[in-house]
């Protein structure tokens, strides 16, 4: 589903990603762990081309992201083609980024209607189904400002799912939440993983990684230091930086 080969990204002279190579098969959940500034979020944003990469290749569902490859040459894609590629990749942000001028229902409806051209009644049915799935049927007509952080994040998940993505990216989805609201969001994500959604989750929730992830990758200073199945990386980390990090978060 996702193949990242030697992905490099720098902001000016600051190198953030120094060659990330990762693959995920369809239906798997990958958790990215690591200290802040290790490049986890940047890598996630490179996958759907919110950031342009400086080196390497990212393939999603077999398609090269952001560029066309013809023989040896790479061509930049038109913005509309990039938009098309992003349709199959959902993203959930740390700060929710719901559209504050739209109700929860409209937040979920706007992309299927405006991007795919789904008729309004169908979009409405879809949106109500998704809100039910995240447990917010009763909040359909409420504006984001009237929702708690956890409710907002669940609407954001429903909004991303409305595009029926093949891959879901979660950028620290629970970091901005009060502790008592984290559980609801994680349980929605857990259910989503059970349905066979391919997910990449940047998180500090070790419990979630242990329980839900098929793979865990530990990043530091723009590289993947260690990766493998959760029990191996979390319980018996081989690398010293991983050991130090896991000790510090537990």
């Amino acid at each position: 589903m996702l193949e990242a080969r030697n992905v490099k990204k720098s902001f000016g002279t600051l190198a953030v990603l120094n060659g990330i190579t990762l693959t995920i098969d369809a239906g798997q959940v990958l958790c990215l762990l690591g200290p802040s500034g290790s490049g986890k979020s940047t890598f996630l944003r490179c996958i759907n081309h919110l950031e342009k990469i400086n080196g390497g290749r990212i393939y999603v569902d077999g398609e090269l992201m952001g560029y066309k490859e013809k023989g040896e040459e790479l061509y930049e894609m038109k913005p509309s083609d990039i938009a098309n590629q992003r349709k199959k990749i959902g993203m959930v942000f740390q700060k929710f980024n719901l559209f504050p001028h739209l109700t929860a229902l409209d937040n979920v409806m706007i992309a299927p209607m405006g991007v795919v051209g789904l008729p309004k009644p169908a979009a409405r049915t879809l949106a109500l189904e998704l809100l039910e799935r995240v447990g917010l049927t009763d909040k359909a007509n409420v504006y984001p400002a009237q929702l708690s952080g956890g409710q907002q994040q669940r609407v954001a998940i429903a909004r991303a799912l409305a595009m029926e993505p093949k891959l879901m990216l979660f950028d620290e989805p629970t970091s901005a939440l009060d502790p008592e609201l984290v559980g609801d969001v994680l349980s929605v994500m857990r259910d989503l993983a059970k349905t066979g959604m391919t997910m990449i989750v940047v998180t500090h929730e070790m419990g979630f990684a242990r329980e839900v992830a098929d793979h865990v990758a530990f990043m530091d200073q723009g590289i993947v230091v260690e990766s493998g199945i959760p029990t191996q990386v979390l319980d018996n980390p081989r690398h010293e930086r991983t050991q130090a990090f896991i000790k510090s978060v537990l």
Partner: peptide, 26 residues
Amino acid sequence: DVGQSEAAKSLGMRNQFILKKIVLPQ
């Protein structure tokens, strides 16, 4: 906030649509 157009882009919206339906109304 840039997060608004980033979220809109991540949903596959095109620039003109983002301007008209997400950014300008706010």
